[in-house]
Measured scan of single mutants.
Amino acid sequence: MPSETPQAEVGPTGCPHRSGPHSAKGSLEKGSPEDKEAKEPLWIRPDAPSRCTWQLGRPASESPHHHTAPAKSPKILPDILKKIGDTPMVRINKIGKKFGLKCELLAKCEFFNAGGSVKDRISLRMIEDAERDGTLKPGDTIIEPTSGNTGIGLALAAAVRGYRCIIVMPEKMSSEKVDVLRALGAEIVRTPTNARFDSPESHVGVAWRLKNEIPNSHILDQYRNASNPLAHYDTTADEILQQCDGKLDMLVASVGTGGTITGIARKLKEKCPGCRIIGVDPEGSILAEPEELNQTEQTTYEVEGIGYDFIPTVLDRTVVDKWFKSNDEEAFTFARMLIAQEGLLCGGSAGSTVAVAVKAAQELQEGQRCVVILPDSVRNYMTKFLSDRWMLQKGFLKEEDLTEKKPWWWHLRVQELGLSAPLTVLPTITCGHTIEILREKGFDQAPVVDEAGVILGMVTLGNMLSSLLAGKVQPSDQVGKVIYKQFKQIRLTDTLGRLSHILEMDHFALVV
């Protein structure tokens, strides 16, 4: 994948999101292997301009796509893939009243899908469409860049269908997702969380590099694949309309690839034109409109599966009536509230959605109805927002919020430890010299600072030695090549209790 991002070429006709291997024109390309080798690009942008032909009021008969309808489940399912879809609609009884809503608040519980998330729908649909058009064949390999849930859905379907599955996901995604993927037989590649989507090191860039190296491999490409919004247009939206008897006044959905909100909203605009569509985008993402909503100094966020630093091709923002931004604290607070007060075992993005819903639905009156999409299960986040310690460490809970008995030293300040200034190293000294210094002084790690004293990161003896043994660096290389740029900081005025929580999850903390 090139470091400079080429513009994806656009073909003359058809839909841009065809499933299957992508040609340089962004659509299915038939021909000899030699032709494909000559024409197939190194990668295709996940934010390529959409060429979708959908228009409100256009006859369904003019759609270029294969459409399906929700099917009634048999008493005995032939395999677990038949437990994807037909998820329950559940009334939220307490939270709406707590925040003064007059309307009825309903939750579409997508964590009841077989793999635990709304992404099971698009995973199965992308595979079925690729099999139907002859792209996927027995023994082929599926590769997908994902925040985890699409990966789980694909790995689940691949396990049943017999495909090899490789999932490329950023490091910030939970260990629970990784464990589930491994249990399903998927191979996992992790990428830096802070890598831009168009960087060769991003999950998108690495996935395309693997595709170019592995024979008979395919990126189904949830960011561009029409099967993504079509899955929701054909099934999720129809289920909502049936469950609500066609009567709903507002739908609120958090947005990642945009397939969920695009597919549902398009069908609702056709069948229930008075329904307002509300999009939820986390602070630090750029999906919301108008652009002024996205202006923030924050560039990272903890909530998973929603928000991006690019506009995915499948996201149709014209069908969203209003956007709201959400933050991590309210997302996790509301997710825990949904679990504790409503018994809905949902993930953090569901918290984002409901946090926005109780604001947006203030305009609705008694007798009206708001539906929220709860995308995934708490299963993926047992060591994250479900953990009091994690919430404390991230600053989303305060010590006084917890009532468990603490040891005698818990409320003492870090400054009472009488710490001395640490050994520091410059980023320009060599790895070999740094190892000598650390061994001589008896230290395992040291902060790396520039000549102005600005902290650049941390270097550890173990990481340097393993990097040297693996051949990633040489003793003569500058130590700046092996620094940890993500590390926890703590102030002298913070409590030892807070430091204790940090050290339970990290090997060190830097006192500043």
Rank of each mutant, 00 (worst) to 15 (best):
P2T: 15
P6M: 10
G11W: 09
P12M: 09
G14Q: 12
H17P: 08
R18K: 15
S19K: 13
G20F: 14
A24M: 10
A24H: 12
K25H: 11
E34L: 04
D35I: 11
K36D: 05
E40C: 04
P41W: 10
W43T: 08
W43Y: 13
I44V: 14
P46H: 03
A48P: 10
C52Y: 00
C52D: 00
C52P: 00
C52I: 00
L56P: 10
G57D: 13
R58L: 15
A60F: 06
S61Q: 15
S63H: 08
P64M: 08
H67E: 10
K72R: 12
K75S: 15
L77D: 06
L81A: 04
D86H: 11
I92A: 03
N93R: 05
K94N: 13
K98V: 12
F99V: 06
F99C: 12
K108N: 02
C109P: 08
C109N: 08
E110I: 01
V118L: 06
S123M: 02
M126T: 06
E128M: 14
E128P: 08
R132Y: 03
G139C: 10
T141D: 09
I142M: 08
I142C: 05
E144W: 00
N149M: 03
G151Q: 00
G151A: 02
I152E: 01
A155L: 02
L156P: 01
A157P: 07
V160N: 05
I166F: 07
P170W: 01
S174F: 01
R182Q: 08
R182C: 08
E187I: 10
I188H: 00
R190Y: 06
R190H: 06
T191L: 02
T193K: 10
R196N: 11
P200E: 08
V204F: 10
G205P: 07
A207S: 08
A207V: 02
R209M: 08
K211V: 13
E213M: 15
E213K: 13
H218I: 12
R224T: 09
A226K: 10
A237Y: 01
E239Y: 00
E239H: 01
Q242H: 11
Q242T: 10
D245E: 12
L248K: 06
V252F: 11
G256P: 00
T260M: 04
T262M: 07
A265I: 02
R266N: 05
K267A: 15
C275K: 01
R276H: 11
